[in-house]
Design a protein around this nucleic acid. Structure first.
Lengths: 171, 171
DNA sequence: GCCAGAGCTGCGAAATCCGCAGTCTTCTCA
DNA sequence: TGAGAAGACTGCGGATTTCGCAGCTCTGGC
């Protein structure tokens, strides 16, 4: 299973040249490769090579490295509604004590699709994907509020998803 | 370019059998195919076929149909930080008047990665990806607040992305 | 100058993709 | 009730892509 990002990576996965924040430094060619794959994740290496000015083999090696490093992943993404998850919500969380440990507990929950630590009136924001209202209620009231350190929550139930892109770096 | 979801689809793209909300109904086999591609977007059709009990050609036809229908897309997703976007934020928006038109305006902005209409104390929530603080400030104060109907906004700057998955339907 | 490592190219074999013809089932309608 | 249309699947062969590897070039360290 590789469809998960975790912010920190182990040392042996890092590139030799890395920037201040510990992430590998990408050159223009790698960015161009990523752009190609953001348009179509199954585009052949030869076609990408032609677009970015590299041989098929070189593109293949770069893509493999980007995947190994965790810089990028190639996956199917779906509209949750279509796949049977009828309730989604963003939940803002106020924490007392250690925010990181609360975040870890949330990360471990399969219903939490997206967990981010924020500055502002919430300490954490979490996106939740559920099958129905009962499921959502259960997750928020029983599971999230039961985590030690969670002081209060505020929920924003999704009415309509208007846009969802994956085009970072294509601007 | 196909890396964008829009919630409403034109009539001719719809499946013959569709559920109440207008989305195509997926059977267990299509879900299983999606799961396979959520683990690895480049997995060969033959391997998927073996896993779900279908021929290579049948898998290929189903995948093509899922892509055409907009149920799923196969794309590269990246860690924005690695690709040079150092500031991300979730912005909650209070709207007066037509929420949909504000949402459309936000959808048109390339910095808005994610736009969703919500119930709760915000009418809209938007995820923004920027290169730096100046860029973020410009987007929020100059661009978003300039949209007619936007009454006020509240920002939550990302400190740390803890989890980001694409595993809907894999539970 | 020499070595080691990283990155690229070219190439042949193996695997995959792709289009198509044919089969089977279901559904519709006269 | 039967003809016919539509949808979905299989099998197959040719085209394309992927994959592994040997060899080349460039760079940095010593």
């Amino acid at each position: 299973m590789q469809s998960e990002f975790v912010a920190s990576r182990s040392a042996d996965q890092r590139d030799s040249r890395e920037s201040r924040n510990g992430n590998p430094q990408l050159d223009a060619v790698s960015l161009a490769i990523i752009e190609q794959l953001q348009e179509d994740g199954r585009r052949p290496y030869a076609a990408i090579g032609k677009a970015v000015g590299l041989s098929e083999a070189a593109v293949r090696q770069r893509v493999q490295k980007l995947l190994d490093q965790g810089v990028m992943q190639i996956v199917a993404v779906t509209d949750p509604l279509t796949v049977g998850f009828r309730r989604q919500a963003m939940v803002g969380i106020h924490v007392e004590g250690d925010v990181e440990s609360v975040a870890d507990a949330l990360t471990a929950m399969s219903e939490c699709e997206y967990v981010v630590m924020t500055a502002g009136s919430f300490d954490l924001m979490v996106e939740i994907v559920c099958e129905d209202d009962d499921h959502l209620l259960d997750v928020i009231n029983k599971r999230i509020r039961a985590i030690p350190g969670v002081r209060s929550t505020e929920s924003f139930v999704y009415l309509k998803l208007k846009k969802q892109t994956y085009m970072w770096g294509t601007r």
